[in-house]
């Protein structure tokens, strides 16, 4: 659990973060969204003390983050940034081994960890381990950057626009991978982005920041239904609202009894994608199949349209 307790950061006369208090639950993904200059990156960098707050306190699992030396604190917290920040003169394996090496792990343990992470990120350890970062594609570099952040098995992972430099297709894949990894390790993630689409895709809770203040801190569904200010509403994008609402839940949640013609869609598909299937296939309903392939019911155009409407 990470508690921001009345955090303020001032540079000379400008206040970049103003009296922010919020609590991040363990094992969740919290996304901080805002335009550039909103103070979101500064807020994130105060967690691992790359920036020191002017006033206030940040507690990690109840403990003031200033109670240990900076470098020790940072070795316990994963950190991944835009443009990956890989060390160009070190191989992929050496990059990933950075924090374990700093912590003085045994070589065998480091080697096993590097191989495990590369495999997890779908990079063949034998092929990629000895490569240099410039030999990798942008998407591969980004994966190595996240793998490096996770190498010492941190409970908390800070990510600053980690997917900002990727093209849309690779970005979507990277986001899916991140969610899978988060489930796998149960890591608490705080991620900063300016991309609302990304926030809705990843977040258990979203914090919207503007001019150093947190305007709203809520679950995606709550934020859609009850945006706290016109700014939040504008950020979500009014034309996107119904689709974002559908994107939060899966087709399984919208199953109605009965059967339908056509190719079954998987229950794990988002309702937004299910709607898109319905519209494209020109059908009023499609069967829904569970993971084992058994049809468990149908989703209908009418049912989804009703779910996309503003809840009362």
């Amino acid at each position: 659990m990470i508690e921001f307790d009345h955090i303020t950061k001032r540079y000379d006369d400008t206040e970049v973060v103003s009296d922010v208090s919020l609590t991040v639950e363990p094992h969740t993904v919290t996304v901080v969204v805002g335009t550039s200059g909103s103070g979101k990156t500064t807020l994130l960098r105060m967690v691992n003390r790359l920036v020191e707050p002017t006033s206030g306190m940040i507690r990690i699992d109840g403990e003031d983050n200033r109670s240990v030396p900076e470098f020790e604190l940072r070795r316990r917290i994963g950190y991944a940034i835009q443009g990956h920040g890989l060390f160009p003169h070190r191989t992929v394996a050496e990059n990933i081994a950075t924090v374990p090496t700093l912590l003085g792990w045994e070589n065998a343990r480091i080697k096993a960890k590097v191989e495990q992470l590369l495999t997890l990120f779908q990079l063949d350890p034998d092929f990629f381990g000895a490569r240099y970062p410039h030999e990798l594609s942008g998407g591969q570099q980004q994966r190595v950057g996240v793998a490096r952040a996770l190498a010492a098995e941190p409970n908390l992972l800070l990510m600053d626009e980690p997917f900002g430099a990727l093209d849309p297709i690779i970005r979507a894949k990277a986001q899916d991978d991140l969610l899978a990894i988060q489930k796998h390790f149960g890591t608490t993630i705080i991620l900063v982005t300016h991309d609302m689409e990304e926030a809705f895709r990843l977040a258990d809770k979203i914090a919207v920041m503007d001019k150093g203040e947190v305007l709203q801190y809520a679950t995606p569904a709550e934020m859609l239904v009850r945006p706290a200010t016109p700014f939040v509403e504008a950020l979500i994008g009014s034309s996107e609202r119904p689709f974002r609402l559908l994107a939060i839940e899966t087709a399984g949640d919208a199953v109605e009894p009965g059967g339908a013609e056509g190719e079954p869609i998987p229950a794990t598909l988002s309702q937004r994608d299910a709607l898109s299937e319905l519209l494209w296939s020109g059908r009023a309903a499609l069967p829904v199949a569970a993971a084992d392939g058994a049809v468990i019911g149908k989703v209908s155009l009418a049912g989804l349209v009703k779910r996309a409407a503003r809840p009362e």
Binding site: N48, E70, E72, L73, R76, Q82, G83, G85, F87, R148
Partner: peptide, 12 residues
């Protein structure tokens, strides 16, 4: 970015 990462990963 490499410098920032080096600090963020906990190098002295």
């Amino acid at each position: 970015a490499a410098n920032d990462a080096a600090r963020g990963l906990g190098m002295t």
